[in-house]
Computed example of a mutant assay.
Amino acid sequence: MVRNSIRRIFTEWRRRARSRRDIGSIDYCTLHDLGLSPGQMQFEAQKPFWRA
């Protein structure tokens, strides 16, 4: 049971790290289309993977 909980946590952390890496590579045109500022993108991309 504890192993499954730990596995879920690590899986979520990996997903967040991958998502934030992807967010950091979005180009300006796509950011504009999404309605995000470069500052918002940078803030999200630099958050540590353990923070939601």
Rank of each mutant, 00 (worst) to 15 (best):
M1R: 08
M1N: 08
V2W: 04
R3V: 03
R3G: 09
N4C: 05
N4R: 14
N4G: 07
S5I: 09
S5K: 11
S5Q: 08
S5F: 08
I6R: 12
I6C: 02
R7G: 04
R7A: 15
R7H: 07
R8N: 12
R8C: 08
R8V: 00
R8M: 12
I9V: 15
I9Y: 14
F10L: 15
F10D: 08
T11I: 09
T11M: 11
E12W: 07
E12D: 12
W13G: 01
W13N: 06
W13D: 04
R14Y: 07
R14F: 07
R14V: 04
R15M: 12
R15V: 09
R15S: 12
R15N: 08
R15C: 08
R16H: 09
R16S: 05
R16A: 07
R16Y: 06
A17G: 01
A17W: 08
R18G: 03
R18H: 13
S19N: 14
S19W: 06
R20C: 12
R20V: 07
R21V: 04
R21D: 13
R21I: 06
D22F: 02
D22V: 02
D22M: 09
D22P: 00
I23K: 05
I23F: 12
I23T: 10
G24N: 07
G24C: 10
G24P: 08
G24T: 06
S25E: 14
S25V: 06
S25W: 00
S25F: 03
S25P: 00
I26L: 15
I26E: 02
I26M: 15
I26T: 10
I26Q: 04
D27Q: 10
D27F: 06
Y28H: 12
Y28V: 13
Y28R: 13
Y28N: 11
Y28M: 12
C29S: 13
C29V: 10
C29R: 12
C29W: 02
C29I: 10
C29T: 03
T30K: 13
T30D: 10
T30E: 14
L31D: 02
H32Y: 09
D33W: 01
D33G: 11
D33L: 15
L34Q: 04
L34A: 14
L34I: 02
G35L: 04
G35R: 07
G35N: 05
L36H: 01
L36P: 05
L36I: 01
S37W: 04
P38G: 13
P38D: 09
G39P: 00
G39M: 11
Q40M: 14
Q40C: 10
Q40S: 10
M41V: 14
M41T: 07
M41Q: 15
Q42K: 13
Q42D: 09
Q42M: 11
Q42V: 08
F43K: 10
F43N: 08
E44R: 09
E44A: 15
E44L: 15
E44H: 09
A45R: 04
A45K: 09
A45N: 02
A45Q: 07
A45P: 03
Q46W: 00
K47A: 10
P48W: 01
P48D: 05
P48S: 14
P48R: 14
F49I: 01
F49N: 04
F49G: 00
F49T: 00
W50G: 02
W50L: 05
W50Q: 10
W50K: 03
W50P: 02
R51Q: 13
R51G: 00
A52N: 11
A52R: 05
A52Y: 00
